[in-house]
Design a binder for these strands. Structure first.
Lengths: 218, 218
DNA sequence: ATTTGCAATACTGTATACAGAAATGGCTGA
DNA sequence: TCAGCCATTTCTGTATACAGTATTGCAAAT
């Protein structure tokens, strides 16, 4: 059975991500407890956890509220993730077993298919596959600790995704190319290559929006 | 006034770091509550926090216990820190104001003095100054989020320090040289230099123990 | 002697009660 | 009209009670 605490956690988190609780909204323990159908105690636990994950801000004895992200913070988030994942990619290049490389290939192909098909929910499908792709790499390139830290960073990005709907087709296509090259680096067992390739991949995502005009110029 | 929760937190954390609660020791909420003089609720909060910080492990409805670190994990910790701090150093090189560079110089000199003096508690004094040194760099090279992540990593190292008493004089001396060079990189506003220098510094710390024999060979 | 099963016990997760800190809203004096 | 202040209300932090789950220790069976 699912504990009340984790129920509260996923409920609140979902509401933040889907925008029901917008930036700056107050999160009142009693209200949430009533809404979710548990007592205040597990709600408190959930809020604490969300706070360490950076989605919620609270200080002193004041009410907790949904955090607002400054542009600078968002940038940093991407940069940090680039830093982490490129490190993980470097390690993974040495350790990832061949059948997981195969899995990566399959995922990469699926993503390419999604992009080519150009369905209306392409973005969502792509994200799903993309997460799996990165998860496999992390599995071989990082410790549990590292995965946890990364999860925290990705929380923030998740929230932003919903707001900015960064789904420019160019961006997705470019990602596909990065994936292919990353896989090549893995097959070559080349840490340095994998590392810089992953860094490119992440930093390119960070600037995803900026490059729209390039598409026109091409 | 200090909240009961933070009182519990620092109490337990201190006990873990100083070894009173060794690896694998059970952390029973009621006992801790009694010992600290608060109720179970704030103790729970403290344990949760310590768990996310990685010092405490707990699963299901079982008792929490002080975490044990595998060698691999420890290595990762150092490597991750190297990764992060070198990134921070690169950024800081561009942004750190000159009077903070001065502060770094003062701290570096103080550390050198400590090493030269060779007092019995040299290690503790050095650590204190060293923390300040790194804190200043982080202040200009990283976001709050990054500082938080780093703090978590350093927790683990703190615990290990107590166990292994890694205070080889050679190591301290080498650190002093690194510091000098790092400062030089800052003054030159050279990101790349600062970055690799910091990486050297951190990775050298990671292998601190191994190099003792070099001292004899010199 | 060692294992298995079953109480008795200990501990956690959750709910709830209460005290004190923060927010709210209206009232007073300009 | 509006700033400042007090009373009221709301909310959090902490303590405690209760239910359910893990642990432990003992006894019986092999």
């Amino acid at each position: 059975m699912e504990s009340a605490a984790s129920k509260a956690y996923s409920h609140i988190r979902a509401r933040i991500i889907d925008g029901t609780f917008p930036s700056g909204a107050f999160l009142v323990e009693q209200d949430l407890a009533g809404e979710i159908g548990v007592s205040r105690t597990p709600v408190r636990d959930a809020l604490n956890r969300l706070e360490t994950e950076g989605l919620v801000a609270s200080e002193g004895n004041k009410r907790a509220m949904v955090r607002d992200f400054t542009e600078q913070e968002v940038e940093e988030c991407f940069e940090l993730r680039a830093q982490f994942e490129s490190y993980a990619a470097a390690k993974a290049a040495k350790r990832i077993p061949v059948d997981d490389i195969e899995k990566l290939k399959v995922l990469a192909m699926q993503m390419e298919a999604v992009v080519k098909r150009g369905a209306p929910d392409a973005s969502a499908q792509f994200s799903e596959l993309n997460d799996q792709f990165h998860a496999i790499i992390l599995e071989h390139g990082g410790s549990k600790r590292m995965r946890d830290l990364l999860t925290q960073l990705m929380q923030v990005q998740l929230v932003l995704m919903k707001r900015f709907r960064q789904t420019i087709e160019t961006h997705l296509q470019r990602s596909c190319w990065h994936h292919r090259e990353l896989i090549a680096a893995f097959e070559a067992r080349d840490s340095a290559w994998a590392e810089t390739q992953m860094r490119t991949h992440m930093l390119s995502a960070k600037n995803g929006g900026d490059l729209q005009y390039l598409q026109a110029a091409e």
